[in-house]
Simulated assay, not measured.
Amino acid sequence: MTSRTWFITGVNSGFGRQMTEQLLARGDRVAGTVRRPGSVADLQDAYGEKFWVAHLDLADLPAARGVVDRAFAELGRIDVVVNNAGYGLFGAAEELTDEQVVAQVSTNLLGSVQVVRAALPHLRAQGGGRLIQISSYGGQATNPGASLYHAGKWGIEGFMEGTARDVAPFGIGVTIVEPGGARTEFRFDSLQLAQPMGAYDGTPAAMVRGAKDRSRPPLGDPAKMAARIIDSAAQEPAPLRVVLGSDAYRFVTTALRERLAQIEPQQDLAASTDWTGNPA
Rank of each mutant, 00 (worst) to 15 (best):
A64I: 05
E94V: 13
T97Q: 12
A73K: 13
Y87D: 05
A64R: 04
F90R: 05
A64L: 09
F72N: 08
D79H: 12
R77G: 04
V67Y: 03
A93D: 13
V68N: 05
T97E: 13
R65I: 02
N83L: 02
G91H: 08
E95N: 02
T97R: 13
A93E: 12
Q100S: 08
G86M: 07
N83W: 00
G91D: 12
R77E: 14
R70S: 14
V102Q: 14
G88F: 07
A93L: 15
F90P: 00
A71G: 05
V101G: 11
V68L: 10
E94R: 12
D98W: 14
L96W: 04
V82A: 01
R77Q: 15
E74T: 02
R70M: 06
D69M: 03
F72Y: 15
N84G: 02
V67P: 08
V82T: 01
A63D: 13
I78S: 11
N84K: 05
F90M: 12
L75W: 08
V82Y: 02
V68W: 00
A73V: 09
N83Q: 09
D69P: 10
E99V: 12
E95K: 09
Y87T: 08
D79F: 05
L75A: 06
F90L: 15
R65V: 00
E74W: 10
L89E: 07
G86Q: 03
E74Q: 15
F72K: 07
E95C: 06
A71F: 12
Y87S: 09
F72D: 08
V102E: 15
D69W: 08
D98T: 15
V102P: 00
A73W: 03
G66L: 03
E74D: 15
V81L: 07
V102W: 14
G88S: 15
Q100K: 00
L75G: 03
A71N: 11
D79G: 05
A93M: 15
V67N: 02
I78V: 15
V68F: 04
L89W: 06
A93W: 13
F90Y: 15
E94K: 04
V80P: 07
V67Q: 07
G88N: 13
I78T: 06
F72W: 14
G86D: 01
V101D: 05
V68H: 06
E94N: 14
E74I: 00
A71Y: 10
A93I: 15
T97D: 11
V67L: 01
G86H: 04
A64C: 02
T97Y: 06
R70P: 01
E99F: 05
F72T: 05
D69K: 10
V102A: 15
A85V: 06
E94C: 03
G86P: 03
Y87G: 14
G91R: 02
Y87P: 01
G66N: 14
A92W: 04
Y87W: 13
F72R: 04
E99S: 14
V67I: 14
A85N: 01
G88T: 01
Y87V: 05
V102C: 12
V101C: 13
D98F: 14
V67D: 00
V68Y: 07
G86I: 10
A71I: 03
V80M: 10
E95I: 04
F72E: 11
V101S: 06
